[in-house]
């Protein structure tokens, strides 16, 4: 399978009302050709609804969807240049793996020899040639997932859509399959939109992430950017972990105020010796997290969580905790970032 010429995706002013409730409000999003973008957000924020509108299963009440520069909003799913991988894989149980993968080509009336060749290529790509003649019910969840992926890829779509593609796999397989998906996506250069509510998954595979909340995109940026410069308080708490405190920071301590400060746990540094910018703190709880540990610290001004690597201090240890970096929010929006003077 060769690299497909993938167009980008441009969504403008997308609106959708379902059950009398406005689910998607004026959503704009531009995905560049060959880019992998995740739609990330809490349950019920409208990710699936958005994806289904892109795929053509739902008609938006307003807005435009362009794939490769072509308006597709009035086309049925069978006429759109996108291919979707469903959450439950949606493999046809009465067809073998090869028949499942070949069906889209059969619909396009491709010659038999070409179908056979492209099915083999797609199955080789996802490493499933040995299950060619198996029925979907007889193969494992991960293999079903890869069959569904092959069925989408064989169409050489301009746009690949995946709805929570990994949610039915166990933790270990999930990491492997998502790396496979990313690798294949990059190799083929195929524009891809993945829906997920798992931030780690989104962070590890995406070029950019659209963080959704209540039918809106809160921020659309690279994983690193979302983490270091979250545009809103929602994004800051949703991506990664955050100490959220009311007030502001003055001379390294939290003082009452109108705004909200957010401090990443890795920006809280705890040590046994006193520090000019630190305050006395005691360790109240230690939560092992594998290669690091999460400390719950009590200071006179606030309770802070901190990450340490190496051997963590024991519960009850006294020391000094300082804040190296923080985010400042007002009315939920980022207004500034602070570092000690």
């Amino acid at each position: 399978m060769t690299t497909s010429v993938s167009g980008g995706l441009a969504i403008e002013g997308l609106h959708k009302v379902l059950g009398g409730r406005s689910i998607i409000h004026s959503l704009d999003m531009a995905v560049r050709p060959g880019e992998l973008v995740s739609l990330l957000g809490p349950s019920g924020c409208g990710k699936t609804t958005t994806l289904r509108m892109i795929a053509g299963f739902l008609t938006p009440d307003a807005g435009s969807i362009k794939v490769g520069g072509r308006e597709v909003v009035n086309l049925g799913p069978e006429h759109r240049p996108s291919a979707m991988v469903f959450q439950n894989y949606a493999l046809w149980p009465h067809m073998t793996v090869a028949k499942n993968v070949g069906f889209p080509l059969k619909l396009r009336k491709r010659p038999k020899a070409e179908i056979a060749e492209r099915v083999d290529a797609a199955l080789t790509l996802v490493n499933l040639m040995h299950h060619k003649d198996s029925r979907p019910a007889r193969i494992s969840g991960g293999e079903q997932q890869r069959t569904a992926l092959a069925r989408a890829l064989v169409q050489e779509p301009e746009l690949l859509l995946l709805d929570e593609p990994l949610s039915n796999l166990d933790a270990k397989l999930r990491v492997k399959v998502r790396e496979d998906i990313r690798e294949i996506q990059q190799r083929l250069g195929i524009t891809t939109v993945i829906v997920t509510h798992d931030q780690e998954e989104a962070m590890s595979v995406s070029d950019r992430i659209a963080v959704m909340n209540n039918g809106r995109i809160e921020q659309f940026s690279t994983p690193a950017d979302l983490y270091s410069t979250p545009a809103t308080e929602f994004v800051a708490t949703f991506i990664g972990s955050l100490n959220r405190l009311e007030g502001r920071i003055e001379d390294g301590r939290v003082v009452p105020g109108a705004g909200v400060v957010g401090i990443r746990p890795e920006d809280v540094v705890f040590g046994p010796e006193a520090h000019p910018r630190g305050l006395a703190a005691t360790v109240e709880r230690v939560v092992p997290r594998g290669h690091f540990a999460e400390l719950h610290l009590r200071r006179e001004d606030a309770e802070l969580r901190s990450y340490v690597t190496g051997v963590p201090p024991a519960v009850g240890t006294s020391g000094c905790a300082r804040i190296e970096k923080w985010l400042e929010f007002e009315d939920g929006q980022l207004v500034g970032q602070g570092t000690p003077a």
Binding site: E78, F86, A90, L107
Partner: peptide, 27 residues
């Protein structure tokens, strides 16, 4: 017959009629 199986057929390029005869009916 799970609706997603029919949707997958539509997505793959099948018309409504083709979806009925190739997916819904056999299942």
């Amino acid at each position: 017959v799970p609706r997603s199986l029919e949707e997958a057929a539509r997505d793959a390029g099948a018309s409504k009629l083709r979806t009925f005869f190739s997916v819904t009916l056999p299942i």
